[in-house]
């Protein structure tokens, strides 16, 4: 190593200082171009979805690379056909957020306030739940839901879909709440607040950002759910939008503009969150996965 330093000290020196110094202008713009190219490749399928949804395509006619004659006809048809399914998805997702936060917030608080071996074990078990294959859960829930009359029902789907949100929300919010100074909560006690009041009017407002992140992701999980929708519904009565898309895929439907328009509608929450709630998204991706 030291020999290398001696042989070309200047080169080493300059590169080493790079993080502090401005990189050469050309390099930065070249990187921008590469970055945009990466985005074009990575996001092409999303572009293609929107592009095709705006063109009337039937059968084997090839789509244009750009929607010169953009038409919303596919969306209009699809909203008619899939409208009830969109409403179902929305109700299931909102219900799942409410249920997940109601269960996960106090749990995260409890786990954040009493560090110790017991809590470590509980946290590990919660992490493990995230690794249990959904099909294993679905196999068992189908007979149980059948007995309880929860098949083909929105409450049934809310309960099942919360299984993705609750463990995630507990881990995410606990990590955040662990950083709340004990003094703040004790101050509330000194003022005569009950344990619940301290939780409600101190811990929850302070943890607002973590709650929003957990809520947004829980919404996305439930909105995107496919496996429980597929296994726990048997009639068209209750049919989330993901299942609506699957029906198109498994039938011999050749009307790809309709399929893409449905897919586009089902993508709205993800796209909206990415545009409107970037900072929450970034913290959610890392927060839920690695402790």
């Amino acid at each position: 190593m030291s020999e290398l330093t001696a042989s070309r000290p200047l080169g080493g020196q300059r590169r080493g200082d790079a993080p502090h110094r401005q990189r050469p202008r050309g390099r930065r713009w070249a990187n921008l171009v590469i970055g945009i190219l990466i985005m074009v490749v990575m996001l092409f399928p999303v572009y293609w979805m929107i592009n095709v949804s705006l063109q009337p395509i039937n059968g084997a006619i090839e789509a244009n690379w750009f929607p010169w004659n953009a038409q919303l006809s596919a969306y209009i048809e699809v909203i008619g056909a899939q409208g009830p399914n969109l409403v179902t998805s929305l109700l299931v997702a909102i219900g799942s957020v409410v249920l997940s936060l109601a269960i996960a917030t106090p749990a995260a608080y409890a786990l954040s306030r009493s560090p110790g071996r017991m809590v470590d074990i509980v946290l590990f078990l919660i992490l493990i739940t995230q690794m249990i294959p959904g099909i294993v859960v679905a196999n068992a829930l189908y007979p149980a839901f059948n007995d309880l009359g929860l098949l083909d029902s929105i409450p049934g789907l809310i309960l099942a879909d919360a299984s993705a949100g609750i463990p995630f929300a507990i881990i995410l919010m606990r990590a955040f709440m662990s950083n709340i100074p004990t003094e703040i909560i004790e101050a509330a006690w000194v003022d005569g607040a009950s344990s619940f009041r301290a939780f409600w009017s101190v811990v929850i407002p302070v943890s607002r950002n973590a709650l929003v992140t957990a809520g947004l992701f829980t919404f996305l999980f439930a909105w995107s759910d496919f496996l429980f929708a597929l296994t726990l519904t048997t009639t068209p009565k209750v049919r989330p939008i993901t299942l609506g898309i699957f029906e198109y895929l498994s039938s011999t439907n050749e009307n790809w503009s309709q399929v893409m328009a449905t897919a586009g509608l089902a993508s709205i929450p993800a796209i909206a969150l990415l545009l409107a709630a970037q900072r929450f998204i970034a913290s959610g991706v890392t927060g839920g996965a690695v402790k």
């Binding site: 996001l43 999303v46 995107s224 496919f226 699957f246 198109y248 993508s267």
Partner: peptide
């Protein structure tokens, strides 16, 4: 470091945020 780094990085998340069945449909096509 380069211009628009943060914006491009967050756009990159989109494939991961889309419902899997949406991605399947788009790729099937």
């Amino acid at each position: 470091r380069f211009p628009l780094n943060g914006l491009l990085r967050s756009l990159l998340l989109l494939p991961w945020l889309l419902p899997l069945i949406v991605s399947s449909a788009v790729w099937k096509w």
